[in-house]
Write a protein that binds this DNA or RNA. Sequence first.
DNA 1: AGCTTAACGGCACTCAGTGCCGCTGTACAC
DNA 2: GTGTACAGCGGCACTGAGTGCCGTTAAGCT
Lengths: 225, 225
Amino acid sequence: MNSRRGRSAEGRAEVRRDLVAAAVRLFRTRGYEETTVDDIAAEAGVGRRTFFRYFPSKEDAISPDHEVGLARVAEVFASAHPAEPTAALVLRAGETVFDLYADDPALSVERFRLTHEVPALRDRESARVDHYRRLFTRQLRERFAGDPDGELRAAVTGAAVVAAHNLALRAWLADGGRADRLDDYRARFRKVVDMLPGEPARDEPALHGVTERLEAAVARLERHA
Amino acid sequence: MNSRRGRSAEGRAEVRRDLVAAAVRLFRTRGYEETTVDDIAAEAGVGRRTFFRYFPSKEDAISPDHEVGLARVAEVFASAHPAEPTAALVLRAGETVFDLYADDPALSVERFRLTHEVPALRDRESARVDHYRRLFTRQLRERFAGDPDGELRAAVTGAAVVAAHNLALRAWLADGGRADRLDDYRARFRKVVDMLPGEPARDEPALHGVTERLEAAVARLERHA
DNA sequence: AGCTTAACGGCACTCAGTGCCGCTGTACAC
DNA sequence: GTGTACAGCGGCACTGAGTGCCGTTAAGCT
């Protein structure tokens, strides 16, 4: 009855695409809360049970490639030359995710709209973004291992990069997700390097805190006065 | 039958505490997934329907004062003097949240443990943290309005402050949440000011970071002295 | 005492998500 | 070509979260 049966490679991918398309279509026309998983499955021409073989939950129907993005970022970090500057590395990793969203602009724009209007999807998206932040932070923590306050610098850098990435990405999506304007928003993301914490100072006497360094500067001033 | 009926102030607060205590107790002994809302309600001596009058979902049973934290942060920003340096302001706002968790260390430690072990609660916590990040970013965006790249600086600063806060808070909780060590971890959080993006450079060569700028100011004084 | 009001508990319902099982088309062996 | 192992599918039944509704009951007021 079903011509896709058994074609394990193309068949599965096709069913998956049908389900995503059905979910997007129904969420837009009928609303997220008003759409049941039964509706999505019926719209895609499969059984309800099959839906849950492709997506772990209803919320995941419009975010099919989250694991792919995480894997790509991990790959960028894993294959990076140890001497590559951190700023260049995090930029490359961030743009990898940017490109992933650019692969299917229409779906990304629709998901952006839904994640802004539906609280349940907004929270889900927050959790997803946090997965990226944790991945960045984890990778950077290894790079900064041994540095004074290396863990803090990893946390701040990871959070900053992900925040800047999302700011630029969402601006692009709000702008319609047009391919010809992609580079403008990628450039906007790259500006984050100007706001990243720098390497810990090495050649000076180790004075890291604001208070300590300020006190030292004032002490110098007092000596000169 | 129920002696708490109708005492709208104390009665409600008491029921609420009972429900939180029951949830924490059951989640620890039986596990989160294995505990139903019926179990929690029965343990607290109320009906299942009553549980949902106090908490919108099962996940919220252990995080009773999220809105309180958001409101306090908003209050810090709202009542701040316009001339107060951004670094000092975000530190004050962050420590306000720190204090909120310190109000009930035992509950905070238990919630920390659960949010690490249960994926559903971990994602929920991510969403909650993101609410703080958005609040910080929104407030800072107003402060930086007009600055070149003010929106990016707001996003980066907000994300950095929240990340540093969580790093320090979770370290304190992992350490047992002892009151006598609270100040150590608050100091750890304060180090974030050294990693925040500075004011946009106007006439000088690029000097980012609070510390560098203060040192430069003192250096100018030294030259004049 | 009579009345109003607010919280409570129970009931019934929808829907997400899961385990189980029987079915069927495909691929492979012979 | 026939038999067989296998993988994906659909249906069924079940649990549990979350919601709307309503009758009940205790507190507060007059």
